[in-house]
Each structure stands twice: as structure tokens, then as C-alpha cells.
Design a protein around this nucleic acid. Structure first.
Lengths: 143, 143
DNA sequence: TTCATTTTTAAAATCGTTACAAAATTATAA
DNA sequence: TTATAATTTTGTAACGATTTTAAAAATGAA
């Protein structure tokens, strides 16, 4: 629902409520993790990171929650990695780079006005993703 | 290997050879299908389309072949669809739109000089994909 | 032809994700 | 509060795309 201007400054709880998602212990933990770790985690990473603090957590809950977050505009799903989905709580326009060697995903600034493009008259663009691939600095310097 | 200028004008056989892939009946059929059908097919679509003419064809062969095509630069893989990979034999710079309702993938012109962007000093960009998502004209007009 | 190499094939295994139903939790209303 | 309904979480099973594996078939070289 990303309507208000500074949704980026809200707490996890506030963002959930603003997006129409009822907060629960699990949803708060997942939203909070995503907002404080801009590492574009997979479901499995989120699950394993939160397991110590929520020992009863189920993988299904993580799947359900990230699906709800994306559906309600509280986060977005990246398809840059064909193996599995990555999730991102940054809501401002930006793009992504994935290193072909180490798999790390790096945020990049977005220089283009991509939202105004359209494939054919009568179509409507709802979202745009720019995915760069290559070798990151680390992997490049290790020859 | 996409080095020569008009690789787009070559036959399937010529493109395979130029990319260092030994032509076989199956590889030729797959390369030819991709070059003549710009519908961004999945492995399953390719498999089912070619099965009538190559009744012994195996899905594994299609997987192996598209992997080789991508690896050697004779085609590219699209990760726009989280369900499964789509393949594209168009080698000139362009971007893609996927309709959220019907799933159709439409080619779009590329207006930006994305290959010159870089995530961090010392990194190298090997490929860029721009993925638009929304509703196509067809699906929009059906309310 | 014979032998080595490459390619194809089919079946099984893997793995991310989804479906499902029961258990637990939370909200509502008497 | 207590009873009841609705929502959420959980664990297991199912699913489906992809990968692995090993054997069979095809190809190339000598």
C-alpha cells in the first residue's frame, strides 16, 4: 500500500499495520529482519536466522508471510536468482547486481525512468526490475 | 561467442558452429525452434513442440541443450518468471514485459545504456536484464 | 571395423515451494 | 469471563522443475 511518503522510516510494526497486515510475533520478526538486513535473503536464510529466537517457527510461516508482504506492498520479491526467490524490504526505486561467482546481491542506484515505458498501447506496467549480473569486486580480485 | 556483427542473420546450424556447439539433430531442432519462435518458451514448451518431429527426444536433452546455448552465448535465459526459466534466441539488446494475468512475455525496446552501469569499483557487468510486469492490452481490455 | 569420445536417453534423486489439515492463538459477542 | 468463530501457525505430504546418474546409442578417429 506504500502510499505515504516516508514509509521507509516506520518501524516493522507500523509498516505491517499501514500495509493492512495484522502483526503477529512471527510476522513482526520477519518484517523486522528484512528491514534491518538488506542482504536480500531467501526464505531459508530468514528461517534459519530467526529460528534461535522463535524455536517453533515453521518454514511454511516464512513462505506465507513473505507472500503476504509482497502482496500488500510491504516488501518485494527478486527473481534474479533462478534457484530461489530473494526478498527485499527496500521500497524506493533501485536495481540489483548478482555476482555469478559468490551469489551476493548488491543494491544499485536506478538512473532511468523505467516506469514510463510500456510494451504496447493499452497495457499497464505495475513493476520494473533491473538485474545486472557479473563478477563483484571481491571475486574479481581473487582472479 | 556473439562476436560477429550479424549473428542474427545466420541459420541455426551456423549459429551453433559459430558458438562452438557441435550440431546434432536435437540441438539443431532446439536452436531452430528458438530462432523461429520468439515466444520465450520454457523447457517443457520446447520439449512438447519438438516431440512430434523427434519422438525419441528426452526432456534431459532439452535441459542440457538450453544450458549449452546459454553458456556459449547462443541464447539467453530469462528469470522473469519465478515458476520456470524461459529461453530467448534474440541476441540484440532488448527488455521483457510479462503479463501478470496471462503470463505472456513480450519483447520491449531498450532505451537505456545499462551496460555501462556498475555496482562497485572493480566489478564487471556481464549481462543486464530489465523485466517489466503488469497487464497486457488483451488482459486489460477484458476488464 | 574397432575403440574412444560424445551425446542422448530414462529413471531416480533433489530441492524449493505449495497444499492441506490439525493445533494453537486471537478476536468477537454473549 | 466464557463460548464460539475466525485467523494464524505448524508439520507433513504432495508437487513440479531441475539435476544427477548410469547405461545405451551415435559419432569420430585410427
Amino acid at each position: 500500500m506504500n502510499k505515504l511518503q516516508n514509509i521507509e522510516n516506520l518501524t516493522a510494526s507500523e509498516r505491517l499495520i499501514m500495509c493492512g497486515i495484522r502483526p503477529s510475533v512471527q510476522r513482526l520478526a520477519i518484517m523486522d529482519y528484512l528491514m534491518n538486513n538488506h542482504n536480500h535473503p531467501t526464505v531459508d536464510v530468514i528461517y534459519n536466522q530467526l529460528l534461535p529466537s522463535i524455536p517453533t517457527l515453521s518454514r511454511t510461516t516464512v513462505y506465507n508471510t513473505v507472500e503476504a508482504l509482497v502482496e500488500h506492498g510491504a516488501a518485494s520479491a527478486l527473481t534474479i536468482d533462478s534457484r530461489n526467490a530473494h526478498y527485499d524490504a527496500r521500497l524506493d526505486p533501485h536495481s540489483h547486481f548478482m555476482c555469478n561467482r559468490c551469489g551476493r546481491i548488491i543494491d544499485m542506484p536506478l538512473h532511468y525512468d523505467v516506469m514510463n515505458d510500456s510494451p504496447e498501447p493499452g497495457s499497464t506496467v505495475e513493476s520494473v526490475n533491473i538485474y545486472y549480473r557479473g563478477l563483484c569486486n571481491n571475486c574479481n580480485s581473487r582472479q
